[in-house]
Design a protein around this nucleic acid. Structure first.
Lengths: 157, 157
DNA sequence: ACAAATCTGTTATAATGTTACACTCTCACT
DNA sequence: AGTGAGAGTGTAACATTATAACAGATTTGT
């Protein structure tokens, strides 16, 4: 498994992705409460992105369907602790593909199948950061997203 | 005026920005209808980003307050023709700062003052694009946004 | 065992964005 | 000038995404 392979678009052993992520979550001393665990499980099913309400509709615990804040709280927690990422372009979420090695991530988004591949790469565009630094801008977070059609969906037309 | 100066964060003659943008809009043979013109005027007031509903609330023509689709239609048109950009991180819009020379833009977003500086730079992060190309991904659009605090707002704390 | 901090349940509401359809206007062509 | 196609507008309703506020329950550290 190479550093910057967009696994999501390649054949791979996805159960391995899940295991790594879950192990990582458990080793960080985080409080993985009921809802957080359930949301993480949903996101880890595959590399598709899910909207908060799609998650909400699939959340259910002992027959109880939670309200929006429940999903958003769990998502905020997972994002904050690096177990998930928010995809701004889609207003949606994906499980972090490399929680063990996630420094700075860019995303490759297929708008046909909703699969999102995460790529470890240098933070932002170098020119952009340089220009920002030049005017004394204090950069806190970066969005790097590329949207298009994955190889698989190109062939399905 | 240098190619990649983040004018928005520098002292500059903003009326020049407006003139360039308006001239550019008029020279492209576009149909700049009433609402499109009004929305463009609002966005060109400065380099702050504006949400669709903020725009909507300030739109008004002969005492008529339009409905949401009016704002979104005008914004879609302006974005499609390169006169404005959507900022994904904010769900908001800015006037294009260089409609005469806008190939591929990144954005530097101050979360204090909402000023958004546009920087002409190579499309996306090179590593990200390379990885995408490697798996036959057909990239159509790119989001490059850096959020933080501008120099001016750092000093105002 | 207790207090503080964190998490949850719940109601309500805000903010953002879209669909659908009827009507009007503009432009190119005869 | 008339006219038909395409583009733009007005309007109502609705869909989606996200947050505020507050009370109650649970966990944690001491």
């Amino acid at each position: 498994m190479e550093k910057s392979e967009p696994l999501a678009f390649l054949d791979h052993d996805h159960s391995q992705c899940r295991r790594t992520a879950l192990k990582c979550a458990n080793n960080q001393g985080l409080r993985l409460t009921k809802w957080r665990q359930l949301v993480l499980d949903l996101l880890l099913e595959d590399h598709r992105s899910m909207g908060a309400y799609e998650i909400l509709n699939r959340l259910e615990c002992n027959g109880v369907k939670p309200q929006p804040p429940t999903a958003y709280r769990a998502l905020d927690f997972l994002v904050e602790h690096g177990l998930a990422h928010r995809i701004e372009k889609l207003n949606a979420y994906v499980a972090c593909a490399r929680p063990d090695a996630c420094q700075s991530a860019g995303f490759i988004i297929c708008k046909e199948c909703n699969i999102v591949a995460e790529v470890e790469c240098s933070p932002s565009n170098p020119e952009l950061l340089r220009v920002a630094a030049n005017v004394g801008f204090d950069a806190e977070s970066t969005v790097m997203e590329v949207e298009g059609i994955c190889s698989n969906c190109q062939n399905n037309d």
